[in-house]
Amino acid sequence: MTETPQPPPVPEEVRSHRAPPGPVQRAGTKASVGTLLIAALAIGGLIASWRPLGGGGTDDRERPFIRAGQAGETVSARVFDAKVVDVRGAGKVRLRGAALDTGGVWILVRTRITATDEETSVGYAALRDARDRVFLASTRVEQEMIGGRSFQPSIPVEGVFVFEVPRDAATNLTLVLARQSIDQRMDAVAEIELSTYDSPTIDKWAATAEPVTIDEPQVVP
C-alpha cells in the first residue's frame, strides 16, 4: 500500500498579533474619541463666533479708486469727467414755485459733466465735510444731474447738484461723484475739494430771504 502525499497544512491565518483590547485600552479609545469631539466642537464654536475685526480689511481692500482735485480742475471718474464751476449757498431754494427751507443751509454745486467713451450717468453725489460726515444729494428737490439723465461722450453738460448740510459742515466740503448709486467699491470716484468759506458767509447764505431757483442742466460748448 502506497501512501499518497498529503499537501502541507495551511497555516491558520493570523489577523493580528495584538491581544484583544483590555478594559484600560477600551477606556483610552473612548477618551480619544471624546477629545476629538471636544476639539471639533471648540473649533466649530470659534468659527461660529468669529467676527472679523476692523471689517476684516475687506472694506479697505475693496475701496474705490479715488481721483482727487480742486474746484475748477477737471477730475476723472473713469466714465465721466467732472469740473466744479461754481458753488452757492442759500436758506431757501425754489422748485416749481414752492420755496423750500432747511434746518441747515442749501449748497448748490454747479458742475460740468462730460462722459468719456460711452453714454453714462452720475448715480452718486454727496458732500463730505471736515469731520468725514457724508451728506447725500437732497431728495427734497428733483436732482436733474443724478440718476435718470444720461450724458453722451464728449458733450459737456452743466447743472447743479443740490445738498442740505448743517451750517457747521458747510465751511469745508468735498464733492464726491461716482457712476454707481449704491456700491462704489473698486470703481473710480471723483473727489473735488470745494473752496472753504467762513462761518459769517454761511450764516449770510442761510439768512437770505429770497429763494434760489435751481436751473435746469444745459449743454455747454
Partner: peptide, 18 residues
Amino acid sequence: VAVRDASRVQYLNPNMPE
C-alpha cells in the same frame, strides 16, 4: 413725511434734526 413741508422723507442727513 417731514412736518416742515409735508414732503416725503427718503433720507435724513447726519446731525440735521427733523
